[in-house]
């Protein structure tokens, strides 16, 4: 007997996107299954905490049906979705910079980093110590593979500023790591 494996619907298919645009929860769930983990990773790298990353992904998918009305189906759907996620994460960081006044997360997040090597812990600590403006550029360029032009668009800065921030971010991380080595 021939076994026909169920072929999952392509997440970027026009039909699925159309269904999600109409608020179909099943389509939204399918999109989450396809892209949720990847978007969470991007959000986590940008925000630095699991709670914030989950909130970013939550907000993205809650707002996705309405946002899809603006999606013009040019280019890759996943790239569009990642840009939206990056924007939501960056907005959240900016909002926190204006409004956050307590160190709640500093304590709440401590137990989360397990199974990491000492080098990774050092590097993560150095990364966490960066100001958001520098960290965002470093994450987007070196960890997420965006170009300086794309980062400039996302952050509302010039490509030259993006390059400068990357240089400063790398320098600060290296200095921090050197301090740890002493």
């Amino acid at each position: 007997m021939a076994i026909h494996a169920a072929v999952p619907e392509q997440p970027n298919s026009a039909r699925l996107v159309g269904s999600a645009r109409n608020g179909d929860p099943e389509a939204l769930g399918t999109l989450y299954d396809a892209f949720g983990a990847d978007l969470f990773r991007l959000a986590y790298r940008l925000t630095g905490t699991r709670e914030d990353a989950e909130d970013v992904v939550h907000d993205v998918f809650v707002g996705l049906p309405e946002a899809l009305v603006r999606y013009e189906e040019r280019g890759q759907f996943d790239a569009w979705l990642r840009r939206v996620t990056a924007r939501v994460a960056l907005m959240r960081l900016r909002g926190q910079a204006r409004r956050r006044e307590t160190g709640f997360e500093d304590v709440a997040e401590l137990p989360a980093r397990t199974n990491a090597t000492s080098e990774q812990v050092e590097l993560q600590t150095a990364l966490d110590a960066l100001p958001h403006a520098l960290r965002s550029v470093l994450v987007l360029k070196e960890m997420e593979g965006y170009s300086h032009a794309e980062i400039a668009d996302l952050l509302g800065i010039s490509a030259a500023t993006s390059r400068i921030r990357l240089f400063r971010a790398i320098r600060q991380v290296r200095r921090k790591l050197e301090e740890e080595d002493r």
Binding site: L28, Y32, F40, V57, V62, E66, A67, R87, L123
Partner: peptide, 29 residues
């Protein structure tokens, strides 16, 4: 660098928020 995964309840939370009428205006790409 290691990255944790999203919590297993996140999917339900999203769909629950939508079902409860939650709507958000996202920034454009």
């Amino acid at each position: 660098l290691p990255i944790p995964g999203p919590g297993p309840e996140l999917r339900d939370r999203i769909l629950g928020t939508r079902a409860a009428g939650g709507r958000l205006v996202l920034p454009a790409a």
